[in-house]
């Protein structure tokens, strides 16, 4: 079980590419726009365009394609399960039956639903992964903070919320490593995680998660102390080393993303949705 190797969400790959140099606000807004578009994308044509576009982003950001794909691996069982559920459970009255056995009936409507929903989740994950791979957590939060700061006036503690997120993201990898250690320690003491039926397997998970949670709380406590010792006292009075400013790259990127959005909207409007 090498858990940490496959986790790409929350990991930052430093680089100097066009994508890396963008203002984090541009990237966050672009990711937001892409996600919003995804929710309205219901045809294979639009998804093909989306695939091309994300591939282009990944390549221009200099992220190894294999690395980006590896991050999807832990998601695979969920995606497959989701696809199967949609395939057999979703149907419309006028759908053609493509497969039928015992109580299981799959229709073409279910097939399309399964495909499209799976693609949607896959791309939601891809978009967020690309965002975190190319944006350091601090600039990500600087961007979010700057975007959310107008909401301070209605009482939203933007800086504090964002700080919480930063810390959560940094600890993804640390906790994954810890989980790995606990699992190995238990395997060394003879626990066979891959043996037994579903209930037996589930039972073996508890002794793994209990120490993980206890350690997480301990870490949180220590982190708070360390932050306090470094004079952290909430968002008030805090300044930033890096000041954000948008430049020509951001204008270019904005242009590209708007053209892409227009194209997608055109496809959404003109191609009949499959679901």
């Amino acid at each position: 079980m090498e858990l940490t190797k496959n986790i790409t969400l929350g990991v930052y790959l430093p680089g100097k590419s066009f994508i890396h140099r963008l203002d984090p606000r541009t990237k966050i807004l672009a990711a937001g726009l892409l996600i919003a578009l995804l929710l309205f994308t219901r045809s294979y044509e639009a998804y093909s365009l989306f695939t091309l576009f994300t591939a282009a982003i990944i390549v221009s950001a200099g992220i190894p394609l294999g690395y980006a794909a590896r991050g999807l691996r832990p998601m695979l069982p969920v995606l497959v399960l989701m696809w199967i559920f949609q395939l057999f459970l979703y149907s419309t009255p006028d759908a053609d039956i493509i497969f039928s056995w015992w109580i299981f009936t799959a229709t073409d409507a279910g097939l399309h639903m399964g495909n499209l929903i799976t693609l949607r989740v896959l791309f939601l994950f891809m978009v967020t992964t690309i965002l975190t791979l190319t944006t350091s957590i601090v600039s990500l939060t600087d961007g979010l903070e700057s975007l959310l700061s107008p909401l301070r006036r209605i009482g939203l503690p933007a800086q504090e919320l964002v700080m919480t997120m930063v810390i959560a993201l940094r600890f993804v990898l640390i906790l994954a490593e810890e989980l790995d250690k606990i699992v190995k320690a238990q395997m060394a003491r003879g626990v066979a995680f891959d043996r037994g039926n579903f209930i037996q397997k589930t039972k073996k998970i508890f002794p793994v998660f209990l120490p993980l949670f206890i350690n997480a709380f301990k870490r949180a406590e220590e982190l708070i102390t360390a932050m306090e010792a470094r004079s952290y006292s909430g968002g008030k009075g805090r300044t930033k080393m890096k000041t954000l400013h948008m430049g020509r790259v951001d204008l270019t990127a904005g242009g590209i993303i708007i053209v892409y959005a227009a194209l997608t909207v055109y496809i959404i409007m003109s191609v009949a949705p499959r679901i």
């Binding site: 350091s136 601090v138 930063v166 940094r170 640390i174 220590e222 982190l223 102390t225 360390a226 932050m227």
Partner: peptide, 12 residues
């Protein structure tokens, strides 16, 4: 503090 992992906040 003792454990460096529990005092570093940022990923850079």
């Amino acid at each position: 503090f003792q454990n460096p992992d529990n005092q570093l906040i940022s990923s850079v």
